[in-house]
């Protein structure tokens, strides 16, 4: 039987923007009444136009921003109504790899500290083993223990992205929201990270919401694909159907534009 780990129902987030004090208000429907499920151990790809609401969707699920309406069930519980204490506990299980790695990594803290923080907060390993676990995580993403004392501004774009990945998997979550996790990586590291994400999925029975613009990558890693356009999910289905037999006009346009 299918068992949903995450169920998103009628989720919406609208913004009101005023160009200046006297101009009329303009409504931006960043996320507009979307619903989808992700099963245990499944990878759902979220693709779509730039600005169509993919990042916002991820942030709503994690409650980094407040939803206007809708429900988000994680293991049957509505996280949007959870109190702060329970939510904090849930955050161990739902992690995110941010699209803007740079913006979300504290520039005043060393890389070793960034990765050790979740290990400590959620008591993932005994204090004496934190050091070794940090090394292990760094190795997994193709960096080494020698990089531990560096600060993020000393890293290249792709290296920062990999720190974000190591931090996200450190707390051994159940669901990882991956927002463009490999778009800053060179092809060899990209392959390595995709293999890693797939291995982790098997080993730790992880589930992914995988946001990406790279259709080849999405095709490789995802089971199902949802396509967003102007805040809505315009098409959703098995990856074969979406890639080979798209129905929606925007999806068709995307697939035709592949280089």
């Amino acid at each position: 039987m299918r068992e949903a780990l995450l169920q998103v129902e009628n989720l919406s987030k609208h913004y009101v923007v005023k160009k200046n004090l006297i101009s009329p208000k303009i409504l931006i429907k960043a996320v507009d009444n979307i619903s989808f499920d992700i099963d245990h151990g499944e990878t759902l790809g979220l693709i779509g136009e730039s600005g169509s609401g993919k990042t916002t969707t991820g942030e709503l699920i994690l409650r980094l921003i407040h939803a206007d309406t809708g429900r988000v069930f994680f293991q049957g519980e509505n996280v949007l109504q959870m109190d702060e204490k329970n939510m904090r506990r849930k955050r161990k299980d739902i992690q995110i790899i941010f699209q803007q790695a740079q913006e979300t990594l504290d520039p005043k803290v060393t890389i070793g500290e960034i990765i050790a923080a979740p290990l400590r907060i959620y008591s993932i390993v005994p204090a004496t083993e934190i050091e070794a676990e940090v090394d292990r995580l760094l190795n997994m993403v193709g960096l080494t223990g020698k990089d531990k004392n560096k600060y993020t501004y000393q890293l290249s774009g792709g290296q920062k992205q990999r720190i974000g990945i190591a931090r996200a998997i450190a707390s051994r979550p159940k669901l990882v929201i991956c927002d463009e996790p490999v778009s800053a990586l060179d092809v060899s590291v990209q392959g390595q990270i995709l293999n890693l994400l797939i291995d982790l999925k098997k080993e730790l029975s992880l589930t992914y919401l995988f946001i990406s613009h790279d259709l080849k990558v999405v095709q490789h890693i995802c089971d199902r694909i949802a396509v967003m356009f102007k805040g809505r999910i315009v098409e959703m289905g098995d990856k074969e159907q979406i890639m080979l037999n798209p129905r929606n006009d925007y999806t068709k346009q995307l697939i035709e534009a592949m280089l």
């Binding site: 693709i47 779509g48 136009e49 730039s50 699209q99 613009h213 534009a257």
Partner: peptide, 12 residues
């Protein structure tokens, strides 16, 4: 990396 954050049709 000017096209790393945009979709396939915008990339084109």
């Amino acid at each position: 990396e000017p096209t790393s954050a945009i979709d396939a049709s915008l990339r084109r």
